[in-house]
């Protein structure tokens, strides 16, 4: 299995399309940070500080690197799935399209091993992408805006001391990775149904967008099905920035996200093990 995973890693990470996401965010994030530095902060000052400054004089570096790192994590979670699907959608469909299954599956020993190896590499790519975005946004923001305490506005205001922030962010990234595992595993599943990698990308984004719409509209019927939609748990990473941290909720959500990932992977295995390879 280790060798299979290594081979799949070579196949995936020697393709140009794997790096589209890294390139895109590698350009986007510095641009946004530059825009913020050159005056974009004022929107935050208006939205956030203006109310506070009516009644308080605020000391400290409020709009600091941790703040923008947190902001980016929250703002990019619709964009990140797009780049994840570029790779996940091609993992199985791409082999079908190229016809390489004709060699791969006759020489592998079992379809399950191949699919499992591909899935592991898909998850590795997902983790790498989320970490890359997290480290880039936080690192760049800290370099440009400096450090300080983290101000989190939800209902009221939570200020997290700087000393604990690295641990908070590491945990947040871990939970964000888990959320994105669900996206990748869903796209991986769709990839098993077709030989065209565009289909899984479109289907996954459609599911995410429709699910997001459902959970945000305050209609009773939609709110009732909300717990069954995986996007409902996308914000688990944000709970790490609550005070006190709701560990019970986080643990429950971790199990749910793992459950979705396992479910989508199981369906993929079951489907693919019985699929006729006609390409």
């Amino acid at each position: 299995m280790v060798r299979l995973v290594w081979f799949e890693t070579i196949k995936t990470f020697t393709r140009l399309r794997t790096y589209i996401g890294f390139l895109a965010f590698g350009i986007l994030v510095p641009l946004v940070v530059a825009g913020l530095k050159m005056g974009g902060q004022r929107a935050f000052e208006r939205n956030l500080l203006a109310i506070l400054e009516q009644d308080f004089i605020i000391g400290g570096n409020v709009l600091n690197g941790w703040f923008f790192g947190f902001f980016f994590l929250g703002a990019l979670w619709v964009h990140v799935p797009i780049v994840l699907t570029l790779v996940a959608g091609d993992q199985i469909a791409g082999e079908g399209d190229a016809g390489t299954f004709r060699f791969l599956l006759t020489r592998a020993g079992s379809r399950s091993r191949i699919i499992t190896a591909k899935f592991i590499v898909t998850l590795l790519y997902t983790a790498a992408m989320v970490l890359f975005i997290g480290v880039l946004t936080l690192g760049l923001s800290l370099a440009v805006f400096g450090s300080g305490d983290l101000l989190v506005v939800k209902r009221g205001l939570v200020v997290l001391p700087e000393s604990g922030l690295p641990a908070h962010f590491l945990l947040a990234w871990g939970l964000a990775i888990l959320s994105m595992f669900v996206v990748s595993s869903l796209c991986f599943l769709f990839s098993a149904f077709t030989d065209n990698s565009v289909g899984p990308i479109v289907a996954t984004m459609a599911v995410i967008i429709i699910s997001l719409i459902i959970i945000t509209l305050p209609f009773e019927m939609f709110q009732a099905i909300r717990p069954w939609l995986f996007v409902n748990y996308f914000d688990t990473w944000q709970k790490v920035f609550d005070d006190p941290i709701p560990w019970g909720d986080i643990l429950r959500n971790v199990w749910i996200l793992l459950g979705f990932t396992a479910l989508f992977f199981s369906i993929t295995l079951a489907w693919f093990n019985r699929k006729d390879i006609l390409s």
């Binding site: 902001f71 945000t216 509209l217 305050p218 209609f219 944000q238």
Partner: peptide, 18 residues
């Protein structure tokens, strides 16, 4: 109408309304 209560969708920066 676009946002229900406790929506997990981040709105980037929330206003301090309360």
């Amino acid at each position: 109408l676009l946002y229900g209560p406790d929506s997990p969708v981040s709105r980037g920066m929330a206003r301090l309304e309360d």
